[in-house]
Write a protein that binds this DNA or RNA. Sequence first.
DNA 1: GTACGCCGTGAGAGCGCTTCCACCCACTCC
DNA 2: GGAGTGGGTGGAAGCGCTCTCACGGCGTAC
Lengths: 343, 343
Amino acid sequence: MPEQPAGSRPTLEAVAARAGVSRATASRVVNGGAGVRRPLADKVREAVEELGYVPNHAARSLVTRQSGAVAVIIAEPEFRIFSDPFFEQQVRGISRELTAHDSQLVLLWVEGPGDYERIARYLGGGHVDGALAFSLHDDDGLPALVHRSKVPTVYGGRPGAGAAAVPYVDCDNRGGARTAVRHLVGLGRERVAHIAGPRDQTSAIDRADGYHDVLFDADPALTARGDFTVDSGARAMAQLLERAPDLDAVFAANDLMAAGALRVLRERGRRVPQDVAVVGFDDMVTVAAAADPPLTTVRQDVEGMGRLMVRLLMRVLNDGGDRGPGAPASVIMPTELVRRASA
Amino acid sequence: MPEQPAGSRPTLEAVAARAGVSRATASRVVNGGAGVRRPLADKVREAVEELGYVPNHAARSLVTRQSGAVAVIIAEPEFRIFSDPFFEQQVRGISRELTAHDSQLVLLWVEGPGDYERIARYLGGGHVDGALAFSLHDDDGLPALVHRSKVPTVYGGRPGAGAAAVPYVDCDNRGGARTAVRHLVGLGRERVAHIAGPRDQTSAIDRADGYHDVLFDADPALTARGDFTVDSGARAMAQLLERAPDLDAVFAANDLMAAGALRVLRERGRRVPQDVAVVGFDDMVTVAAAADPPLTTVRQDVEGMGRLMVRLLMRVLNDGGDRGPGAPASVIMPTELVRRASA
DNA sequence: GTACGCCGTGAGAGCGCTTCCACCCACTCC
DNA sequence: GGAGTGGGTGGAAGCGCTCTCACGGCGTAC
């Protein structure tokens, strides 16, 4: 039965009094108990239990100068955000790992460049110990801004060439693309087309590079560009069909565009996979498995990437500013080809 | 050119010194400046600017006993989380509105019932001023737990009968369903089937109720149940076709199940909408518009619901514990029928 | 011309916690 | 047996902020 003054939570002071020790000792026990003799420590823990003591985060944070929170900066352009469970899985991974590190997740949703000022102020305000951000377009100003705020940050996805050398976590876009294209070639396809993503996104670039790694002398007519949306995939497919009616396979830089391609192929009477084999990328749950026919695609462990981002950040945070053995290396995660009916 | 001791951020003290006023006055200006004469206030603001002063949140929070943060509790079962941009939009709306209220968004991802303990401790710890949660299944223990923590909370989605009377924001599931079914009837359809959602989710129940509002004497053979996934929709459709081969329309309780239904109808050679008209619910971007044929569906303003949740919470927070004119009423938002090709 | 009141300002206490430092008490070593 | 050592403990100083309260100066009313 707690016996503090009603309406307010018990303080360390109260715990100390009840345990018959000083506040200093009580504090030590609450924070792990190193250097406190057993019987005393037990008495304190008992008092904590009885009083239902929960440390006041603000007070602790005030003196330790640590917030115990990490900002997750979301700045995806709308078209991607709304149509992509990707984000969700990644945040889930981040959340899980953060919990394991006793840290809180503060979500910062960026409403376009006009909002950067606010983000900068927030980060500069010392509300969070570190930040996790996602790389977008090459010309985005966010990374520079985050960098200036001095808050340790780890990126999801390889930042564009413009950005400074920052730790990031990405999947092996290029290798995954190679696997996809090799699979198509292994199926005996001889005219493998590529529906590429936006020029200014590293994931799209890397996937296109993977395509060219395998098909280094590919006919330029076999490549069309989309913007990662279903419609753009459909348009690209239509273009390709016009430019190269003899194509017998398509590697799309993501599942959404592959779905668009599938639609156009069906409309034009091309059978998948008999006439044209199709491979996507991402293994987006709602899209790939639900497509008709179900999509063969390249899977990446998005949740795992989220977790890894947190681990990397924690390492940076623990190394402190001492720059340890250099900034922690970035991590590239493997991908996996998921075979379904489309190729 | 800031002139504080290197490495540490300027404090109010520094601002006050530079402006030649007391810390108290500086504080007043920083917090709106009420009751401070113009010239002094200007001097303080100038000092703030020059020093690049940002208030220390922990210190402020320690004395005001307010965190300026709101928890968003996510506890969806996996199947839904992964396949539903719903969550994303809602969080986006919440984030936007929270920003407008100068509050931070702390994301609490619940990893199943075993994780409730942690959530309770966090909420009880006074880290947040309020919470936003989503109602799930009737038998979920979370609402009770949140309620016990005394943290003011607003729900997204009408909580089940078991929950106490809590403020919530929901869309007009029942009315939307009525509109959908009336549309089908208006098209001249005479055998309108329903693919219902899980029994223990209020949204599914309300949508089924809407169906029965219009078709109060509907043939029970015309209703099959799914669990809001694509596959379950397909299974339900197959069942319906078997039980009532003469059906000429289907109202599915969500778009995912409608997509599953579409697939089965196509496989069985039923033309949509000529033979069977199909209406979904939610207007899920990736699903409804991308379906073949594009899905006629009921749209709800998910982002708007998110924003409303925040406004409701802010009202509760501002009314304080004084219980004002009773707990704020819940809000039901209108829905809208989006006509595409499937009906 | 004096008394009263009010508004604007500053001094200072204190929010709950961590942590430095001094102290004390074994215990060991000469 | 006395001095030195070291680990365990408590006292107390802040961390940076808000807010109460006392004070001083000016305006108004009598």
